[in-house]
Design a binder for these strands. Structure first.
Length: 568
RNA sequence: UCGGGGAUCGUCUAACGGUAGGACUCGAGAUUCUGGUUCUCGCUAUCUAGGUUCGAAUCCUAGUCCCCGAGCCA
């Protein structure tokens, strides 16, 4: 696969405070100049473009040092929400984006025994205790933003009793909710996360990897920093909502002799216009049938974008261009689309297809004649090669490319007007045939045989060039035209009426069944990308078969005519 | 009523006491067998009010607004 070269893709000095800071650490030789990062998804859903930003950041940050590496770690500490189904999809998505974690694939669940032993160690040192309050009591005694918490009556249990209780929790002697293990920090802390946070809870649930080996499971706040430390992570990068956990993160890792001691850094998560990014909301779109699934081409999931025809390098370049900072932002999806077009423009072969066919008959071309033409796949790069087209008496052109009463600045076909059939010939429209109801069904034209191939023989100016296919050679196809999923920049804006699903764009998918493809488009397999000239970039959908090709519109070309026409 | 984070063109993001720059968008033009691409030019910003300084987006003071935080979720 060709890649757009030149501007971007790792070469630019992208704005990124994490990179700045890590470069400084490398320069000063911190951790021996080595940088270890990790991408830590919970296997409970599909990855989306927001995760892509994080993946790019983690991998490119690690690449800042020669011996740097980025781990893929599944944060699977909550068996109730997680499933192996997601593990493979996550691997596939990260790989597809172009990143390689080598042998460094880990699961928090692989650390359960070690985490348990570390917890025992904390108990021995009087830094953790078993609390036997009910959930409601714990919540009540935690206090709130304005009032400090109150110590649990179980806070001062002896080490022996704690050890015994914790062992029996593990052994399955207690019901869910009977006890929890808590870190003994400070119930009066202004930071509610430090008010004796829970480390373990009892869950008699089968884990997707450890089965029924465990009935106590560590909490994120404990498992995450420890996992980072076990793996030798140096820079633990996460989104801003975890900033409050940083003191706790440090508390845990500082109580053991880790080298290096990992440190957490936070950045602002990605928000994009005209979509939603939360797993919960995306799940609703799927479950309520607003879209066809997690890989629906309208979804901002990696799987959806892949099916839509996005390229990994466009996503990477986008991630790099938007930069990394600590401010909340809502990135214009136009930035993503620009990166996409930039890549597709450089890599897609040009072909022709007609979405809404209008028959055009060349009266001075005999029925049996087939004029063979060679058309390049790229207007400016011969290495793309070429394919054959056939000019015949009956052709299809786009309904939109004919206007019976042309408005001003109309360059396309109209009665008495001459246009160029792309790589074909110059044709002039003589007559418009209509059916009983007055709709145009056919155009009668003549062609200038001197213009074969599309060149004006005498250098005469022909402003309009339109796409076409030979009726005899055309292949029928289904084409799915996708547009943005929501009508509003921010579907979650509270000033709107009702639920966010009310902002779904009813025209986000239009299925065109009678599209006519040029022959070269028929044999292409799922994932192949092309430009349909003047229409946009398209990709073959997995639903496609040799007899029944299905193309998805990835994105339209920029259209300055639409802009002009729109202004009246 | 608490704690933490953050405010720079329409959008994203630089400038770290010394010319507010880049990308996207938008506008004008050139080129063009895609009203595409490419090229040229242009418009648009430091949250507010004070202060320090020869000089402030940057430092100080006081405000304002936004985001996050009280799961046995991550």
């Amino acid at each position: 696969m060709r890649e757009a070269k030149g501007k971007g893709d790792g070469q630019e000095n992208a704005p990124n405070f994490i990179h700045d800071l890590v470069r400084e650490d490398v320069r000063t030789g911190k951790h021996g100049g080595v940088v270890v990062t990790r991408f830590p998804p919970e296997p409970n859903g599909y990855l989306h473009i927001g995760h892509a930003k994080s993946i790019c950041l983690n991998f490119t940050t690690a690449a800042l040092s020669d011996q740097g590496r980025c781990h893929l770690r599944f944060d699977d500490t909550n068996p109730e929400a997680e499933d192996v189904e997601y593990v493979e999809s996550i691997r596939q998505d990260v790989r597809w984006l172009g990143f390689d974690w080598g042998s460094h694939e880990y699961f928090a669940s692989d650390y359960f025994e070690r985490l348990y032993q570390c917890a025992v160690d904390l108990i021995r040192r009087g830094l953790a205790y078993v609390d036997s309050q009910s959930l409601a009591e714990i919540r009540e005694r935690r206090g709130d933003f304005y009032r400090p918490g109150v110590n649990s009556p179980f806070r001062d249990r002896s080490v022996e009793e704690n050890l015994d209780l914790f062992a029996r929790m593990r052994a399955g002697e207690f019901d869910e909710g009977a006890h929890v293990l808590r870190a003994k920090i400070d119930m009066a802390s202004k930071d509610v996360n430090l008010r004796d946070p829970l480390m373990y809870r009892i869950r008699k649930v089968t884990h997707h990897r450890t089965g029924d080996d465990w009935c106590i499971y560590p909490m994120y706040d404990y498992a995450h920093p420890m996992s980072d430390a076990f793996e030798g992570v140096t820079h633990s990068i996460c989104t801003l909502e975890f900033a409050h956990h940083n003191p706790l993160y440090q508390w845990f890792v500082s109580h053991f002799e880790f080298d290096p001691v990992p440190r957490q850094y936070e950045f602002a998560r990605l928000n994009l216009t005209y979509t939603v990014m939360s797993k919960r909301l995306l799940k609703r779109l799927v479950e309520e049938g607003h879209v066809g699934g997690w890989d629906d081409p309208r979804m901002p999931t990696i799987a959806g974008m892949r099916r839509r025809g996005y390229t990994p390098s466009a996503i990477r370049r986008f991630a790099e261009r938007i930069g990394v900072s600590r401010r909340d932002s809502l990135v214009d999806v136009g930035l993503l689309e620009h990166a996409l077009r930039e890549d597709l423009n450089a890599t897609s072969p040009r072909t022709m297809a007609v979405l809404r066919p209008l028959k055009l008959v060349i009266e001075n071309l005999p029925e049996e004649e087939e004029i063979e033409l060679v058309a390049p796949y790229s207007p400016d790069d011969p290495s793309f090669g070429s394919r054959r087209l056939y000019l015949t008496r009956e052709l299809f052109i786009e309904q939109e490319d004919f206007m019976e009463e042309p408005m001003k600045k109309w360059f396309r076909l109209a009665p008495g007007r001459e246009v160029r059939l792309r790589y074909g010939a110059l044709v002039t429209c003589n007559e418009v045939i209509k059916d009983g109801s007055g709709s145009i069904v056919e155009l009668r034209c003549t062609w200038d045989p001197e213009s074969k191939g599309g060149n004006a023989p005498d250098g005469r100016k022909v402003r309009g060039t339109i796409h076409w296919v030979s009726a005899k050679h055309a292949v029928d196809a289904e084409v799915r035209l996708y547009d943005r999923l929501f009508n509003e920049e921010n579907p979650l804006d509270e000033s709107h009426e009702g639920d966010f699903t009310r902002r779904i764009n009813p025209a986000s998918l239009e299925i065109v069944r009678g599209a006519k493809l040029e022959p070269s488009l028929a044999g292409r397999g799922p994932g192949e990308r092309v430009q349909l000239e003047r229409l946009g970039y398209f990709v073959v959908d997995p639903d496609s078969t040799p007899d029944r090709p299905v193309y998805n519109r990835t994105i339209q070309l920029k259209d300055s005519w639409a802009k002009l026409a729109g202004k009246g």
